[in-house]
Structure formats: structure tokens, C-alpha cells
């Protein structure tokens, strides 16, 4: 479904992604793991074309994304949930969801506000609250719900557990498993190995913008030296 091949991405002069390639199949949940600064967030942004790769290709369902503006990437069926949540703090929950709304898409689950409130009951209680009056965990849920309003076929979740109370992290993991059951494809970046193992089918480990491991968690389990070298858990 998503085919990333040999992309090179930069922040100013800093070379962040160094010929990175990987793929994600339909219905899969894949976790991007790695230290801070390994290039996980940049990978997400490069797939989304918020940080367009200077070389290489990102193809989604056979369509080349490199060179498109971010809004076209979103229209193509990618949903992006940023690391820092980026809620519209002056808008209410319902208005935040409205910004994300896009027409239904073939081959992707279709979401309504009611369904999303079922998935994240906290949001239903606070539907008329402004984003800025919500806790970090609620903002994270709102950010995911807002992106789901675009009915994406592939969801990019950037560090959903960062800076969130452990009890909310558990809730988040359950929600992601629900999304997977709905047939959504998910690419998730994480530093929390336990969280990743609980939700993902496969792990990709990044270091200095390069892929160091790509395989199942069972396989990763058998290679503790990789885990120790790149994840420093």
C-alpha cells in the first residue's frame, strides 16, 4: 500500500533521512522505533510531504506522492496525527472535527462524529469545550479523531504516547487496536517498546535516518543485541 524507497530528507542543512526504504501492506500496523533524533518524526513528515524528500520516492497505492503539496497527500488517503497534537485551541471539539472532515473514501473505513465519540467517549462529554481547556490525553484523542474525519486509508501516528499519563496510554493502545480491527492501516512511531509491541504487527528500527531492523516483534525478541544497540531500553 505504502512504498517508501531510498528517500533523503533534510532540515535546512541537516541530513536527517539517509536513503530510507520500507513498505507497509494494507491492514498492517507497523511501528517505527528508534531513539530521539533517529528520524522517526521526519519519516512521518516526509511521507506526508510536510518535509518533502529531496531524493527518492514515496508511492501510495501506486501513486507518487513526492512533489505533491501536503493537502494533496491528505486527499490521496493519508491521515497524519502530529507528535505535538496541534489541536486548534480556540476551536471547540466539534469544530476541530469539522476541519478534518473529508468526503467518504472507497476502500477506507468511513467515520462519523457519532462513531468517533463512541471510540473516544471523553470527547463526547466535552464536545463544546475549546481545545485549550482539554488535558494532554484528551487533546491526543481529539487529534486522532480529527484526522479520522478525513476517512484516511493509512493513518500516520507520530509518538501517540509521548508525554501522556500511563493510564491514558493504555486507553490509547485499546483505541488503536479497535482501529486495526476496523481495517485501517497504521504506521506508528514510538519510543515506548511495550506500547509498540502491544499494538503493532511489525517493527522497523531507525538509527541516524537508516533502517537497522525490519521484522516481527518475535524476531526482535531473538536479537536482543539489536534492541540494546538502537533502542537503549
Amino acid at each position: 500500500m505504502l512504498e517508501v524507497s531510498a528517500i533523503h530528507s533534510f532540515y535546512g542543512k541537516a541530513h536527517i533521512l539517509d536513503g530510507l526504504s520500507f513498505s507497509v501492506a494494507r491492514g498492517e500496523v507497523v511501528a517505527l522505533l528508534g531513539r530521539n533524533g533517529a528520524g522517526k518524526s521526519t519519516t512521518m513528515k516526509s511521507v506526508m510531504q510536510l518535509v518533502p524528500p529531496r531524493a527518492g520516492s514515496v508511492s501510495f497505492e501506486g501513486r507518487e506522492l513526492v512533489g505533491l503539496p501536503a493537502y494533496r497527500t491528505a486527499k490521496a488517503g493519508l491521515g497524519y496525527v502530529p507528535e505535538d497534537r496541534r489541536i486548534f485551541s480556540d476551536l471547540t471539539v466539534l469544530e476541530n472535527l469539522e476541519v478534518g472532515r473529508q468526503p467518504p473514501r472507497e476502500g477506507a473505513p468511513h467515520w462519523t462524529v457519532a462513531q468517533l465519540f463512541e471510540l473516544f467517549p471523553n470527547l463526547a462529554e466535552r464536545r463544546h469545550n475549546r481545545g485549550k481547556h482539554m488535558s494532554g490525553g484528551e487533546q491526543q484523542m481529539l487529534s486522532i479523531a480529527r484526522t479520522l474525519m478525513g476517512n484516511p486509508a493509512l493513518l500516520l501516528l507520530d509518538e501517540p504516547s509521548e508525554g501522556i499519563a500511563p493510564v491514558i496510554v493504555e486507553q490509547m493502545a485499546r483505541s488503536i487496536l479497535t482501529l486495526k480491527a476496523e481495517g485501517l492501516t497504521v504506521l506508528i512511531s514510538e519510543q515506548n517498546l511495550h506500547f509498540a509491541r502491544a499494538v503493532a504487527d511489525r517493527a522497523i528500527i531507525l538509527e541516524s535516518g537508516q533502517k537497522k531492523f525490519d521484522g516481527s516483534f518475535a524476531l526482535l525478541e531473538k536479537q536482543p543485541e539489536i534492541r540494546d544497540a538502537y533502542l537503549s531500553v
Binding site: M48, L50, P69, A70, Y71, A74, K75, Y80, P82, R86, F88, S89, D90, L91, E95, N96, E98, V99, G100, Q102, R146, T147, G150
Partner: peptide
Amino acid sequence: ILVRAATQDREMVGALGVNQ
């Protein structure tokens, strides 16, 4: 709503599929 959202964070509005 889009205008108010863009007032706060243009790039995010773009990432949600709106041609800013």
C-alpha cells in the same frame, strides 16, 4: 471554521486535506 483554524495553524490545516 477553516478560516479560524488556519489563523492558528496553517500547516496543520493543509495536512488535513485543505488547500490552504
